[in-house]
Amino acid sequence: MGQLAQQLLNGVVMGGIYALSALGLTMVYGMMNIVNVAHGELYMLGALFTYYLTSTLGLPYLPSVLAALVLVALIGGAMERSSLRRIRGQTMVVTTLVTLGWSLILQNVSLILTGGIPRYITSPFPETSLVLGGLQIAPSRLFAALAAGAVIVLTHLFLQKTVLGNAMRASFQDKDAASLVGINVGLIYMLTFALGAALAALSGGLLGTISYVDPSMGAKGLMKSFVVVTIGGMGSFIGAIFGGLILGIVEALAAAYISSAYKDFIGFIMVVVILLFLPSGLFGKRERYA
C-alpha cells in the first residue's frame, strides 16, 4: 500500500513535468495549427543554455533558467519570422517538415558545438529527500512539479484574461478581423511561436536538474510530449494536464509492477487505444475530416 502511494506520488510529480513539457506543443498546435517537431530541440536548448549559464558563467539557477527561456524565445521568434510565416495556410505536412528542418539544424548544431557528452545541471536544492507522511520526494522534483503547475495556470490566465492573450486568440480565429481592430497579426504570429518556444525551454531548464542534458534529449522529450498531447487532445490545455498526469502515473505504475523496459511502450499503446475510442483525445476538439 505504501509502495503504491509512493508510486502514485512519483507519477503525479512526473506527470506535472510532462504536462509542462507538452504545453508549448499543444498551444502552438491549438492556435497556429502547426505540429512543431522542433519542440523537443527547443526544450533541449532550454536545458543546455541553463547548463552553460550555471556552470560556465556561474549564474544562480533561477536567473539562468529565465535567461535560457529568453534566448530560446528569440530562436523561436526567428524560426517563425524566417520560414514558418511564409508557409502559413499550407497543409500540415508542409508545416511539419519545415519544423523538422529546424529540428535537424538545432540538434546537430548543438551536437557540433557542445559534443554529445551528457551533462548535469547542478540543482540548487538539497539532495536528501523530503519525507511527507511516510512518502519520499526529492526537493528538486517537487520544485519542478510545483513550478510546472504554476506555469500552466499562468499561461492559461495570460491567454484568457490579458489583452495580448486575447489578441493572440483572435488573430488565429479570424486574421482579417484582428487586423481590422488594429492587431499587428504578423507580430502576434511571431510572439505566439516564441511563447511556445519559451514554454519548451522552461520545461527543459526545470527537467535538466532531474535528468541529464545532451543534444539528443530533444527527440525523447518530443515523443513524450506527443503522447501527452495526443492522449489529452491536441490544442487543449486541460488535456495537456490530464494527459501528463495519466502518462506520469501509468509509467510509474508500469515501471514498478510490470517492467521498466515496457514503461515507454505503454505510452504509445495508450495513444493508439485512447484514440480508437476517443478520436480526439480526452479534451480535444473533434478533428474534422479534411
Binding site: 505540429v35 500540415m92 495526443t230 504509445f268 495513444v271 484514440l275 480535444g284 478533428e287 474534422r288
Partner: peptide, 13 residues
C-alpha cells in the same frame, strides 16, 4: 479511423 494531426500521431506512435 483518424485524420489529420491525430492520424499523424497514431502513425508515429
Amino acid at each position: 479511423q483518424l485524420r489529420g494531426a491525430y492520424f499523424c500521431m497514431v502513425t508515429i506512435a
